[in-house]
Design a protein around this nucleic acid. Structure first.
Lengths: 350, 350
DNA sequence: GTTAGCACTCACCCAATCAGAGTGCTAATC
DNA sequence: GATTAGCACTCTGATTGGGTGAGTGCTAAC
């Protein structure tokens, strides 16, 4: 049972009004503000029908109507139209991202900043997931008699290193030999893959002398792989929600803040989401039932996939936020396209 | 004009009571709970005197007394006695820190976690400041035709790296030569020092061929130095304050949260504080007038200095918190003492 | 110097009241 | 049959006023 054209208009009007003012909207104010050519009474009848169908709710008898999650879903799927970003916002984004273009993590952090500045909501950004990253080479460098640096370099330019203190002394040759052996063994394999075959493989059983050194290095190697797999989460604008009426109760505010207390858990939840712009509204979220969450994906060199996102109350300017996120992720993916011949340097220091 | 013994007793009683219950304490309840051998009326007179001297305040005529910042200061300086940690807390700390002993940043994060878990306040930890860190060596490693990794290693084992995309191709020899030249030029100098002499020095003017490569590397080198100088801030238990009555108003809670919105600013403020256990109470803080802030320092290998801290309302168990922090920083410094011969690995991946 | 006694002051809670916004229904109108 | 005007009804939120209890400050007695 479809909604009539007029019902859609009314629903849209209610959503617009509620998103703007955060107060239950009555029939009279709709009739006045939006020129629908019908009287408040008619609107009341339609509202009553819309409520019966589950698109509106009623805080109490004598209050106006509030859109339900279902209404927002309908809005996002059918009614919402893309907004063009203001020239000001576009310029802001271009400038800010260009400024930190050289530094990978900084760019991503800036994207999150922009997101929260423009939407006045809470935003976040994840550095790309590196499950698919493959090992390019492994290098061991001497520091002093007992200390070496282990460095793992991925094909996409990810670099992670650890300082290792060894029990036994080493020689330069042995170090080089082990570097080479490890590179040969692991080159081309994904981080995930190597880590899962957790069993410390015999990297160089044929060279018996290596074993002591190797044994000293392996735990650090695995730990570094793990570290390389971790994505970084940058959060911005957490305190923005304090300006929203829906979080004027301390309990709601606390619940919201606690979402981010466990960063790891939150990160996992975000990583599980599909690619592209994804909107989940209220109850559709397992994490926080009275929030909406919008995520979008950007690409690095067309391969690795990172995410940015916005969290706010279900009362949110979906059209504007999704358009902004599309623009932002396009811009990011463009920045991170490592076409050759370009004078581009990239940071990897997570 | 000193306080009499009895006045001190009463003041201490009021502080104890208020810290415990967060409610203005009246003369009668002091007389009842603490056996001071005098009647409520006498206590009232003393309280009146203490108020005149600025140690107590009065929310309104018919309310009990509340300790002022000045009272807490007196308490911290003179009255407070060290508490022994419970066996449970000690074990908790030892176990948790030992578990992540290998990973530098993780250990520090765990210290902050412990601090907030045990005190039920908001805590933070800073990785050591690296102003004093000196450069040990610089290494350039090839990745592909146009990409190299720049790695700076400090004497204390700090390692930071960047991936650089070059305009011009390079050869292995030139890379090695530049590595050596840079190492010779910068070895033993502090990061700060090198960065301040910002002028791109002529690393190898005698070898004309190097110039193009060198020019491509220098900006990345300086950026990496900057990055190496940054300290990491880990915050824990931010939502703990929601359980405290003083933050039941949304405005106070917002103000508190906004303190941490600008991490960089906050970090700077903390870095400026003196070494050792430092307590600043209420108005003594420029940052947040109605909080108390306690910081303490730990050492890495006896040299580099990092900080941990706790923030909460001025109503705080100063004795317990400072004792805890002393224990924790001792434990941390102990963990980070890089005595030789030990099988210790240390992470540097900030 | 200490204490008992007592008037006084607020903050807090509760109930009652009132105005305003908005609905839901009915009956009249197009 | 759809639309609208009119009106009774409902509920919230702000305001008011009395009652209670905790606690002070003062005075006079010990």
């Amino acid at each position: 049972m479809d909604l009539s054209e007029r019902q859609l208009q009314i629903l849209q009007a209610i959503i617009n009004d509620y998103v703007e003012n955060a107060e239950p909207v009555g029939s009279r104010s709709i009739a006045k503000k939006y020129d629908l050519g019908v009287s408040p009474a008619t609107i009341r009848n339609e509202m009553s029908d819309l409520e019966e169908m589950g698109y509106l709710t009623h805080p109490h008898t004598s209050a106006g109507r509030v859109p339900s999650d279902k209404a927002y879903r309908l809005y996002v799927n059918n009614l919402m139209k893309k907004k063009n970003l203001s020239a000001r916002d576009k310029r802001l984004i271009n400038e800010r991202l260009a400024a930190s273009r050289d530094e990978f993590d900084a760019t991503i952090r800036h994207a999150a900043e922009l997101l929260s500045e423009i939407t006045h909501l809470t935003s976040f950004a994840l550095t790309p997931a590196t499950n698919e990253e493959t090992i390019s080479f492994i290098r061991l460098l001497p520091v002093d008699e007992r200390t070496i640096i282990l460095m793992i370099v991925g094909e996409s330019g990810n670099v992670t290193n650890t300082t290792l203190r060894l029990k036994v002394p080493y020689t330069q040759e042995r170090l080089d030999l082990l570097s080479k052996n490890m590179t040969v063994t692991y080159k081309g394999r994904t981080l995930d893959d190597v880590l899962k075959s957790h069993i410390i493989e015999d990297v160089g059983t044929d060279i018996a002398a290596l074993n002591a050194l190797e044994a000293g290095v392996m735990p650090g190697f695995l730990r570094t792989l793990e570290d390389m797999l971790n994505v970084n989460l940058y959060m911005e604008g957490m305190t923005n929600i304090f300006n929203l009426p829906e979080y004027s109760s301390i309990d709601r505010a606390r619940d919201f803040m606690q979402l981010f207390a466990q960063k790891d858990w939150f990160t996992q939840k975000i990583l599980q989401r599909a690619d592209g712009v994804v909107v989940t509204i209220g109850d559709e979220n397992t994490m926080m039932k009275d929030c909406s969450l919008i995520t979008a994906t950007y690409h690095v060199d067309g391969k690795l996939v990172g995410k940015i996102g916005v969290i706010g109350p279900t009362r949110m300017k979906y059209g504007e936020v999704t358009s902004l996120m599309e623009y932002l992720t396009n811009n990011l993916s463009e920045s991170f396209r490592l076409t050759d011949g370009e004078d581009k340097t990239e940071r990897n220091d997570k």
